[in-house]
Design a binder for these strands. Structure first.
Length: 657
DNA sequence: GCAAGGTC
């Protein structure tokens, strides 16, 4: 019988696919690794007939790239030499047993069938597996499965339609690996050696490390950018008009359509026109149904944003806990960009597992009893993993506190997705007063629906507004001119930072939390827990700040209508003097695009796509980038005084003063 | 003592 060796990227895929193909596969232990099993079974492939199959896995990359011995020691070469120093590939120390297992199985198989994730990194991992297998058995045929989820029918279809590895995608990753290594290590050594004597030692036995990385620097850049905007903020006064009217014992406040103006004289003139008009006329009185949409299926980025906003955990902790819940089998794979459920998945069955819970069980039961609605479809699909959802019920009290918090969030989010939008009625009233438009907005929540289970969203009825009729006129009970001033934006919070990284392609969903943790560890930023609520998305500078100090009083706006509900405990980031000095130093070097900005990383992403599409080659991209960065590197060395003087200004002086 | 990306 033909022997086929299948290799997945991680244990869960190997197990799921093997069991789909086999019915029930026999799991054999592998020496030296508890979490890898070799699943053995027979299977009929259209192409090769009845085969004897071993289905095993790796755990991410197996091969590691590093500089050779000669360049390992910091003092052994100039950092600039790392732009061309030879790079060696070897099996990572922690992956020896995995590689040995593949070698052992490959010796007896004639076909290698690769089942790594269908993304760029998966394609590269596939080539790593192939190289290891071909070394012991050069005659193997190499194939690859194209699959985008692990639903049974899909997997079986994929198994019968093998394709070839996509070399271009693997090459794109290879370019990324080489560039990140050379640039990261070269700049890290250079700036550490140049600056470490100016900076207090981190601890007695360890020298301060001043690292550079294509992701950590832009991440730091976002924090510094916001900090400088806060520090350089100059409040601007503004003026506005507010009208109130009491009807049916209800005090209705009308807001000025223009919001506010920064010209006091202009507001005075308009205000006088209003007063002259004496009476206001209702020009719109509309009640219309409105809804608050239920959330989209959960992606990794969203989990980290929501986690750092509502669960009093850092994004790093949220990911750690989510990975734990995944390996224990309670939730699905936590690294996904997909916000749409595959039509094949049995969502009702998953909801059904939650009916036994004391807190959300009744809600789940109601869904089963008829309230269930298909989740919304987002726009993202990584074709590898479904949205994050609970796969099994676990009594929350048997989990530790952090696990419980994350599990509860995943479950509530999932149940919310399978529920209905919240329904309400919006009332909009507009009046014309001296030629100016003022409006009042009211909301009555009619059915909370998904909000019953998803307590992270807020949507509450406002004060009930009285009935007006279009054409009706009245004399306002109160008409006042108020003043206020714009308020500085707040420091960058963790959910905001994750949003910026995501939008700018800094890191991947799986690594964003690592980069944030790294700039903390390097002491480029400090994280501090924000107290009180109302954190995110506030005050983006001019004109958005709340109106403070209005003399007429009663200026404080009602609570945020939407998405508020911050419980406090959000992390906010403030750069250290060292962090500011690094960013300012590079910004002052006069490069077209500073290393602190996200553009270089974005550009690398564009070039990786070009490699994938065959428009350029791996070597061209690597050579061109190395050339470009070598120029930046050399100029940085020549102008190291610019960097040093920023460090002097922010770190040295700050510590003596 | 260095990067970023997989994953356990």
């Amino acid at each position: 019988m033909v022997r086929v060796l299948c290799v997945a990227e991680k244990p869960s895929i190997a197990k799921a696919v093997a069991n789909h193909l086999a019915g029930q596969a026999r799991a054999e232990n592998v020496r030296g690794i508890q979490w890898v099993k070799n699943y053995k079974f027979d299977f009929g492939f259209d192409r090769w007939g009845q085969c004897s199959v071993t289905f095993t896995c790796v755990a991410g990359h197996i091969v590691e790239q590093d500089f050779g011995e000669r360049y390992k020691k910091w003092t052994s070469c100039q950092p600039a030499a790392l732009f061309e120093a030879p790079i060696e590939s070897r099996i990572a120390a922690a992956r020896k047993a995995v590689a040995t297992n593949i070698e052992a199985e490959a010796r007896y198989a004639s076909i290698l069938y690769i089942w790594t994730d269908c993304d760029r990194e998966g394609e590269h991992i596939g080539t790593e597996i192939r190289d290891i297998a071909l070394k012991v058995n050069p005659n193997m045929q190499v194939w690859r499965a194209r699959f985008s989820n692990i639903e049974r029918a899909h997997v079986i279809r994929a198994s019968q339609n093998p394709v070839r590895l996509d070399e271009a995608q693997a090459q794109a990753v290879s370019a990324r690996i080489e560039l990140d290594l050379r640039l990261g290590v070269a700049f890290t050594r250079m700036q550490t050696l140049a600056l470490q004597n100016m900076i207090p030692q981190q601890s007695e036995d360890r020298n301060k490390l001043i690292s550079y990385g294509s992701c950590q620097f832009p991440t730091l850049g976002f924090v510094v950018d916001r900090y400088l905007r806060v520090r350089n903020f100059i409040p601007e006064p503004f003026w506005y008009i507010r009208v109130a009217h009491t009807k049916d014992d209800i005090d209705v406040k009308f807001n000025w359509r223009r919001g506010h103006l920064f010209d006091r004289m202009a507001v005075i003139l308009i205000f006088e026109r209003c007063l002259l008009a004496k009476s206001a006329k209702v020009i719109k009185m509309a009640k219309k149904p409105t809804a608050k949409w239920k959330p989209l299926p959960l992606t990794t980025v969203e989990l980290q944003k929501m986690g750092s906003r509502f669960l009093r955990m850092t994004s790093e902790d949220v990911m750690k806990v989510a990975e734990d819940l995944y390996t224990k089998g309670w939730i699905s794979y936590p690294r996904t960009e997909t916000d749409q459920f595959d039509p094949g998945i049995n969502l009702r069955a998953l909801v059904g597992k939650q009916t036994q819970d004391g807190q959300w069980g009744r809600f789940a039961q109601n869904l089963i009893d008829g309230e269930f609605q298909q989740p919304r479809q987002g726009r993202n699909n990584d074709k590898a993993h479904p949205p994050i959802h609970p796969v099994n019920y676990i009594v929350p009290t048997t989990l530790n506190e952090r696990e419980r918090t994350v599990y509860e969030f995943v479950v509530r989010r999932f149940l919310a997705c399978c529920s209905k939008d919240a329904v309400g009625e919006a009332t909009d009233i507009e009046i014309d007063y001296g030629g100016e438009i003022f409006h009042a907005h009211g909301l009555t929540v009619i059915a909370r629906n998904y909000l019953e289970v998803y307590r992270y969203d807020r949507w509450e009825s406002s004060q009930v507004l009285p009935q007006y009729t279009v054409g009706e006129t009245f004399e306002p009970t109160e008409a006042n001119m108020h003043d206020g001033e714009t308020t500085a934006p707040a420091y960058l919070t963790e959910p905001e930072l994750i949003g910026l990284m995501d939008a700018n392609g800094i890191g991947t969903d799986a690594t964003m939390a690592d980069h944030i943790a790294k700039i903390k560890k390097r002491e480029y930023v400090i994280a501090r827990t924000k107290t009180g609520g109302g954190a995110a998305g506030r005050g983006r500078g001019r004109g958005r700040g709340g109106a403070r100090g209005g003399r007429g009083g009663r200026v404080g706006a009602a609570a945020a209508q939407n998405g508020g509900g911050d419980t406090g405990g959000v992390q906010e980031f403030i750069p250290t003097t060292l962090g500011i000095a690094l960013i300012e130093g590079y910004d002052n070097m006069g490069f077209e695009t500073s290393l602190s900005k996200p553009f270089l990383r974005k550009e690398m992403e564009v070039q990786m796509k070009a490699i994938c599409e065959g428009r350029t080659t791996r070597n061209d991209v690597v050579q061109q980038n190395l050339e470009q960065y070598r120029a930046v590197f050399n100029r940085t060395v020549q102008q190291i005084h610019v960097l040093k003087s920023a460090v002097t200004k922010y770190v040295v002086n700050a510590n003596h003063g």
